[in-house]
Amino acid sequence: MATAMARSALRTALRGGSRPSAAPKRSFASSAGHDDAYETAKWEKITYLGIATCTVLAIYNLSKGHPHHEEPLPYSYLHIRNKEFPWGPDGLFESKHH
Protein backbone atom coordinates (compact mmCIF):
# COMPACT_ATOMS: atom_id res chain seq x y z
CA MET A 1 0.00 0.00 0.00
CA ALA A 2 2.67 2.42 1.08
CA THR A 3 4.90 1.50 -1.84
CA ALA A 4 1.98 1.89 -4.22
CA MET A 5 1.32 5.35 -2.89
CA ALA A 6 4.98 6.31 -3.05
CA ARG A 7 5.08 4.98 -6.58
CA SER A 8 2.11 6.94 -7.75
CA ALA A 9 3.51 10.07 -6.11
CA LEU A 10 6.79 9.50 -7.90
CA ARG A 11 5.00 8.94 -11.16
CA THR A 12 3.15 12.21 -10.75
CA ALA A 13 6.42 13.96 -10.00
CA LEU A 14 8.00 12.36 -13.02
CA ARG A 15 5.31 12.79 -15.62
CA GLY A 16 3.63 16.02 -14.84
CA GLY A 17 4.78 17.44 -11.56
CA SER A 18 7.50 19.65 -12.89
CA ARG A 19 5.82 20.52 -16.13
CA PRO A 20 5.80 24.28 -16.52
CA SER A 21 2.42 24.19 -18.23
CA ALA A 22 1.04 23.32 -14.81
CA ALA A 23 1.78 26.95 -13.90
CA PRO A 24 -1.55 28.76 -13.88
CA LYS A 25 -1.76 31.42 -16.53
CA ARG A 26 -2.64 34.64 -14.81
CA SER A 27 -5.79 35.77 -16.44
CA PHE A 28 -5.38 39.52 -16.39
CA ALA A 29 -1.71 39.42 -17.35
CA SER A 30 -2.75 37.92 -20.65
CA SER A 31 -5.55 40.33 -21.31
CA ALA A 32 -5.08 42.94 -23.98
CA GLY A 33 -3.23 46.17 -23.23
CA HIS A 34 -6.33 48.17 -23.98
CA ASP A 35 -8.24 46.76 -20.99
CA ASP A 36 -5.32 47.58 -18.74
CA ALA A 37 -5.15 51.11 -20.09
CA TYR A 38 -8.85 51.47 -19.30
CA GLU A 39 -8.38 50.00 -15.82
CA THR A 40 -5.38 52.25 -15.22
CA ALA A 41 -7.45 55.34 -15.98
CA LYS A 42 -10.33 54.04 -13.85
CA TRP A 43 -8.18 53.35 -10.79
CA GLU A 44 -6.38 56.64 -11.24
CA LYS A 45 -9.75 58.38 -10.94
CA ILE A 46 -10.71 56.26 -7.94
CA THR A 47 -7.44 57.22 -6.27
CA TYR A 48 -8.04 60.93 -6.89
CA LEU A 49 -11.58 60.57 -5.58
CA GLY A 50 -10.24 58.85 -2.48
CA ILE A 51 -7.63 61.56 -1.93
CA ALA A 52 -10.30 64.27 -2.30
CA THR A 53 -12.61 62.54 0.17
CA CYS A 54 -9.80 62.06 2.67
CA THR A 55 -8.74 65.70 2.36
CA VAL A 56 -12.27 66.90 3.13
CA LEU A 57 -12.55 64.43 6.02
CA ALA A 58 -9.15 65.48 7.37
CA ILE A 59 -9.97 69.20 7.25
CA TYR A 60 -13.30 68.57 8.98
CA ASN A 61 -11.66 66.37 11.62
CA LEU A 62 -8.73 68.62 12.39
CA SER A 63 -10.85 71.79 12.55
CA LYS A 64 -13.07 70.19 15.18
CA GLY A 65 -10.31 69.93 17.76
CA HIS A 66 -10.01 66.92 19.94
CA PRO A 67 -11.92 66.39 23.17
CA HIS A 68 -10.08 66.66 26.44
CA HIS A 69 -10.47 63.69 28.67
CA GLU A 70 -10.75 63.86 32.43
CA GLU A 71 -8.23 61.99 34.52
CA PRO A 72 -9.86 58.65 35.30
CA LEU A 73 -10.25 57.45 38.87
CA PRO A 74 -7.18 55.44 39.93
CA TYR A 75 -8.69 52.00 39.46
CA SER A 76 -6.25 49.23 40.19
CA TYR A 77 -6.32 48.00 36.60
CA LEU A 78 -5.24 51.36 35.20
CA HIS A 79 -1.66 52.59 34.94
CA ILE A 80 -0.25 49.18 35.80
CA ARG A 81 3.38 49.20 36.96
CA ASN A 82 5.02 45.96 37.99
CA LYS A 83 8.49 47.42 37.52
CA GLU A 84 9.97 50.43 35.86
CA PHE A 85 10.26 50.51 32.08
CA PRO A 86 13.84 50.06 30.82
CA TRP A 87 13.79 53.68 29.61
CA GLY A 88 12.25 55.32 32.65
CA PRO A 89 9.00 55.87 34.53
CA ASP A 90 6.72 56.80 31.61
CA GLY A 91 5.41 54.43 28.96
CA LEU A 92 5.75 55.23 25.28
CA PHE A 93 3.07 57.65 24.08
CA GLU A 94 2.27 58.25 27.73
CA SER A 95 3.58 61.74 28.49
CA LYS A 96 0.39 63.62 27.69
CA HIS A 97 0.13 67.31 28.40
CA HIS A 98 -3.40 68.42 27.71
Binding site: I46, G50, T53, C54, L57, A58, N61
Partner: peptide, 24 residues
Protein backbone atom coordinates in the same frame (compact mmCIF):
# COMPACT_ATOMS: atom_id res chain seq x y z
CA UNK B 1 -10.34 59.23 8.81
CA UNK B 2 -7.39 56.86 8.63
CA UNK B 3 -9.41 53.97 7.20
CA UNK B 4 -10.29 55.66 3.85
CA UNK B 5 -6.75 57.03 3.68
CA UNK B 6 -5.39 53.48 3.72
CA UNK B 7 -8.11 52.30 1.33
CA UNK B 8 -7.19 55.10 -1.10
CA UNK B 9 -3.60 53.96 -0.86
CA UNK B 10 -4.85 50.49 -1.80
CA UNK B 11 -6.65 52.00 -4.80
CA UNK B 12 -3.40 53.72 -5.79
CA UNK B 13 -1.48 50.44 -5.70
CA UNK B 14 -4.16 48.88 -7.96
CA UNK B 15 -3.70 51.85 -10.27
CA UNK B 16 0.05 51.14 -10.28
CA UNK B 17 -0.61 47.46 -11.04
CA UNK B 18 -2.76 48.22 -14.08
CA UNK B 19 -0.28 50.84 -15.24
CA UNK B 20 2.51 48.24 -15.14
CA UNK B 21 0.34 45.73 -17.03
CA UNK B 22 -0.53 48.37 -19.61
CA UNK B 23 3.15 49.21 -20.03
CA UNK B 24 2.70 52.78 -18.78
Amino acid sequence: LNTPILLSSGAAVTWAHHAILAGK
